[in-house]
Structure formats: structure tokens, C-alpha cells
Design a protein around this nucleic acid. Sequence first.
DNA 1: TTGACATTCAAACGTTCGTTTGATATACGT
DNA 2: ACGTATATCAAACGAACGTTTGAATGTCAA
Lengths: 215, 215
Amino acid sequence: MSPDSGNKTTRDCLLEVAERLFAQKGYDAVSVREITNTAKCNLASVNYHFGNKKTLYLNVFRERWMLRAQYIRACFEENLAGCGDTSPASVIQSLAEALIKGPLTDEERLFHFQLMIREMTKPTEAFEIVMEETMKPTFEGLEQLFQPYLHESIDEDRTLLNILSIFSMVLYFNFARLPVSKIIGHAYDQRFKDRLVQHIVDFSLSGLPVKEIAR
Amino acid sequence: MSPDSGNKTTRDCLLEVAERLFAQKGYDAVSVREITNTAKCNLASVNYHFGNKKTLYLNVFRERWMLRAQYIRACFEENLAGCGDTSPASVIQSLAEALIKGPLTDEERLFHFQLMIREMTKPTEAFEIVMEETMKPTFEGLEQLFQPYLHESIDEDRTLLNILSIFSMVLYFNFARLPVSKIIGHAYDQRFKDRLVQHIVDFSLSGLPVKEIAR
DNA sequence: TTGACATTCAAACGTTCGTTTGATATACGT
DNA sequence: ACGTATATCAAACGAACGTTTGAATGTCAA
């Protein structure tokens, strides 16, 4: 018997289903039975293919989450190359587009950032993967890109805070779609995403659009 | 037998312990036994005082989370009154200080935002409390405060996006202390919090501190 | 002192959990 | 055709779960 529909292996099918469920509900709220029932395979297959539930969760990050992170990064670099320059405006635009519109489906993007948020609020072993192999390298790259354009008086710490601020916006608008929709008052559709990217670029470059120089 | 130490009632003690554990681990990762053991009271007391585990969780929001939200709001209004004006700079400064340094202890603040994040990633009935009774009124108030200072061409939606962006920073720097510390490379102490408030104000008003007018 | 009520307690309830087992089915080199 | 390795299966394991029970304790007005 093949798992689920299609020609995927049981192992891959388990990873796929597990990612969705872990992202939606969190590790503890998902049972092995729910995973194997959804994947239409036997209860024991989780332990057969991954040893235990915890290792399955870890492999979701190793084999699926990391892959998506690489897609996003590749998309960012492609976007940036298409800009012709590496000005802060181009960098932020490329980054926001890769993260908000990017190469992933809406569903994948939601899962990706939900898993990320879960690891940040209650870190497990997967946190190291997210942190060391994705965030740190990305942030260091951004730091290098921004550095030549920032005032000389800006030290490394302040640059990092700036990057973290941009990141916090992207993160928030990705995982908190429900509250964002509630506040804004309309759907999280393609038009809104375009607007969001533009907003993130504008805000990151200029902050609030205030009238006077009360800055 | 009184629960825990001190003169608190069993009920209050349960709420206090439950808030801490739910914030740290999430609803499903905390058992009723862990709560009652930590609170040094009987296993059955959760069901006696609250009916069931879910209602206890809900009451953590009703009786504790809402209270803290009110403290923070009061602190914000106090800060703003002390500024003498309601310019965006004063508003953001007052808001950031109330949320980052504020009237709560570091621990309380962490729990507060962890619970908030959990409701945003996987909303339960408590989400309505967070959203309707706290976030929406706050955001509407901020909108009113910012409106007169923003360019006439800025519509309501863009103002809300600006507010959400400021909020996303505050939220992120509050709940993601671990990754922030890892990225920045030093502790989340008082000095850092001062610096954080200053950064949030600066970034919200001006965005990235770029050299030229590449804006 | 008594009776009524509120609270705490140890023990048990039935259910679900993650994991293990041993039998069975399938695939493939020899 | 055979033997071995790989994969799936139904069934069961003990442990932990949320909840219930009924007796024991404390409190206080009458």
C-alpha cells in the first residue's frame, strides 16, 4: 500500500503531513496517530522511519524547513541581482518580496513562519538549525550589504538592530495574518501583499511619514 | 493547608502558576498535574475552582493578562502626559518605554507577550480578549494620535500598517529575547533595553540611517 | 454544639498518548 | 526458487492525561 495519493514514499508523506500539523497546532497538540491517519499510513511507521516523534519533528526542520529557507534566500539573491545595484532600497525591496510574495505558496509560507515562531517562543533542538544555519548567515550578509550605505557613526550593534527591525516586520506580517486582517479590515490577498511589500520598503527607509522635521 | 507560600488563595495561586507555565510551554505541553504540583495544591482543585483546564487557561487571560495590558496602557498614558505634547516622537517614545521597560517585571513582560504570541499563532477563545479588548482600542487610539501629524495623502490603511510595524518591533523584541541576544551577542539587560527603546523611536521616525537621499 | 456550606484530599475513572512487538507482505540479488 | 532485507500491518504495552468521586476537613452562623 502506498501512503496518501501519488508516488511519494511513506517517509516523505509523513514529513509533509507532520510539517503542516506541527506548524498549525504545535508539537504537543499533534499526536502520532493524527499524523499517521492523515498520511494514511500505519501508526508504527513514524517510529520505523524516524525512531520517535521528536526526531520526526527535527527532521521536518532538517529536510523541509531548511529547504524552504534556501528557496527564499535564492529568490532574494535573484531579486537583488535583477535590481542592478545593492542600495538599501534594492536590498529591502528584494528581501521583502522574497519573504512576503516569494517562491512559496501561501500555505507553505504560513507553515514556514509558524514553525519559526514556535521555535522562538519555546526553543528545541531545531532552534539551532533555524538560528545558526539560516538567520545568522542571512543577517551577516545583510549587514555587509547595508554597511557602506550607513552613516559612519553607526556601529555594528545598531546595524543589527535595524536589520532585526526589518525582520520583525516581515515575520509579523507573515505569521500573524489573522490579527493583521482583523485590524486592517480586509483579506490577505495578492493586492494586499503588494501593498505590504511597498509599505515595508517605505517604512524601513523613512519610518513614519510625518509632515514636519519633528525628527 | 494553604497553597504555595503566603496568604494567597488556592484559586489565585493556580492562576499565577498556570500563567507562568502556559506562557513558557504552551497549553498542550502543560498538564493539570504539573500546575497543581507547582502550586502545591490538590489535583482536583483545578476542576473545583475552574471547571476544567480550558477554562483555567481562559481565566488566565481574563483575570491576569487583561490586568497587565491595562497596567501597560496606563503606563503609556502616564509617559505621554509627562511629555507635554502628542507628537509622533513623544507617542512612540512613551509606547516603547511602556512596553519594553514598563511597569511589569522582566518575567511578567515575557509571559505577557509569550501568551500573546501563542494566541496569534493558534487562536483560541482567548484571542477575542486580546484582539477586541486590547489591541483594537489601542490601535484606534494611536491612529487618532498620529493622524494630525501625517501627510494628508496617507489614508487610514497606511496609518494602520505603520502602527502595526511599530507594534511588530515591540512584540518581537519582547518575546524573542533569546534569538535577539544570540544575534546581538550580549545580554538582555537594562542598558540594552534603554538602547532598544531609543532604537525603536529612531527607526520608527526615520527608518534606516542611510547616508544619501537614496530614498 | 449543631448543621450547612465551602474547600481540600487520596483514589480511581476511562481515554489517549508514544512506543514496541511479532506476524505478514513485498522487492531483489543470487 | 530461494533467502534476505525492507516495509507495512493489527494489536498490545505501560504511562500519562483530564476529569470525577466521595470522604475528610475547615469555617461560621444559629
